[in-house]
């Protein structure tokens, strides 16, 4: 009796699986969606790092050196750029990512049909604001003596920042930075709002055709989970390497 119940249930699951993934090669939707999600996350992540480094550098330079600089064009320029950076952070952090994405797609790049590119831009700009604050915190946490030691040895501002401050900042911010990219990966799930065929969008399309929610949604959830776990493992490895100098 029990055995036949299990057998019925199992064949039901099997049929569901076949319907959702095998029939008409529906797994390809998920596969393509995965590629789109990875593409958006990866490029937006790089963009976020680049923007983050630039904005954080401007803001800390203004905070640390702005008042000791001589009056003149460089100082005026720094003050203006710093103001623009703060405005950028305020606007990005103050509005939902979905709204930013839709403004990008339906207002700014209204003539573009390349949704993936627009999504990359929107998520990259969004991530940049958060990453810049992470880096800024990292730079501020380094003792001023490190900077002074570098300068007292004759290194210039850029050399000191690049060789002495940056490596220590990177080590300190890595866990927070990794967290930001895990959030980013999952945030890209709203890319479907502008008709980008990402992983979540693929699940919805399958659901729309097969009228079954369980299989596609669970499958996609498992894929996100696996990606995040992989990312966590990777960062852990990197972190251990960077922590070499902490061993006593």
């Amino acid at each position: 009796m029990l055995f036949s119940d299990i057998a019925t249930w199992f064949s039901g699951v099997q049929a569901e699986f076949t319907l959702n993934f095998i029939t008409s090669n529906r797994w390809r939707l998920i596969y393509n969606g995965l590629l789109v999600t990875l593409q958006i996350t990866l490029v937006a992540c790089l963009m976020g790092i680049v923007i983050g480094i630039i904005v954080a550098t401007v803001r800390t330079t203004k905070d640390k050196a702005g008042h000791t600089m001589r009056k003149g064009l460089p100082r005026t320029l720094l003050v203006i750029v710093d103001w623009v950076c703060r405005l950028y952070i305020t606007v990005i952090r103050g509005t939902p990512i979905v709204i930013q994405l839709m403004i990008m797609y339906f207002v700014i790049f209204v003539s573009s049909r390349n949704g993936v590119l627009v999504a990359i831009l929107a998520f990259g700009l969004n991530s940049g604001a958060y990453v810049s604050e992470i880096f800024r915190g990292g730079i501020m946490s380094i003792d001023a003596g490190q900077f002074e030691a570098g300068r007292s040895l004759g290194l210039n501002y850029v050399q000191t920042m690049g060789l002495i401050i940056a490596p220590q900042v990177l080590k300190n911010v890595l866990p927070t930075l990794a967290n930001e990219f895990i959030v980013l990966l999952k945030e890209t799930a709203v890319a479907g709002y502008v008709a980008v065929g990402d992983l979540t969008f693929a699940a919805n399309r399958i659901r729309g055709v097969t009228y079954s929610a369980f299989m596609p949604l669970i499958a996609v959830a498992l894929i996100y989970l696996t990606l995040v776990m992989f990312l966590t493992w990777l960062v852990g490895k990197l972190e251990r390497r960077l922590r070499q100098s902490d061993n006593r």
Binding site: G145, Q146, Q168, S245
Partner: peptide, 10 residues
């Protein structure tokens, strides 16, 4: 310096 300021990552 009083606080040495060696570069801890090197």
């Amino acid at each position: 310096f009083q606080q040495f300021n060696l570069f801890p990552h090197l």
